[in-house]
Design a protein around this nucleic acid. Sequence first.
DNA 1: ACACGGACCTGAAGGC
DNA 2: TGCCTTCAGGTCCGTG
Length: 260
Amino acid sequence: MAGVGIRAVILRRANLRYEFPSDFVRRIEGQTVRGVARRAKYLLVELGSGDALLMHLGMSGSFRVVQRNSREKGLHKDRYGLHDHVIFELSTGTVVVFNDPRRFGFMSLLAPGEVGAHATLGRLGPEPLTPRFDSAAFASALHRRKTSLKNALLDQRVVAGLGNIYVVEALHRARLSPLRRASTLATRAGEPRAALDLLVQAIRDVLKEAIRNQNRTGGDDRFRVYDREGQRCPRRGCGGTIKRIVQGGRSTFYCPVCQR
DNA sequence: ACACGGACCTGAAGGC
DNA sequence: TGCCTTCAGGTCCGTG
């Protein structure tokens, strides 16, 4: 992406989750992409001007990449569907379309310096696939938390980038109950580091596997417990039955037999 | 500082 | 065939 130009931007509505900045189009059109980065679930595109385009997919957002001389030609507005909200036409002829039915996603532009000052970005916890995320850092993030382990892992300030599915999957792999109070992981005697280390590893494994499988469509075997209420626990020799409960308003799936 | 519930939106799926 | 309810992979804000 580095070096690619952005020839045109079309907004097909005035807002997603938030209003677009009034100068959104003007500040992007004609710019060159300096680089693309991800932080937690946020995507950052650095522009030649020094501005950063900050984007989030929310729950239902997606990008699709269209070659100009494929069936979907040109930038004529009528070519796009109801929920195709933002269109980027690149200098390479590629068109990138942002689609988001629920509009929980957003885009904004940050001037140089505003990225570092951004309140939410600044409070994000460590990226789980970097060395900064280890059991010591994890322990200090959890040890005062009175909330459940499940809710703590969903908190982006504890560890960045985990969503409902991957939290549920990681807890199953680490054999930890989603209901357990978060602080007990860091302090429980006779269980020194083992549980924490296991959870750190489980989180990394779940994410790496998800990244590896990103292009696999469908597939009933993507998740071991998520959305499997009433099914047999997949852990060898466990024999438990997957249960669904609600925590913080979201579904949790877990095995009450092997997750403690 | 933390914890919790509700709000923001639309579409898909299931029950009657 | 509807019509109604529930649920969905996220985040922010207000209230205790």
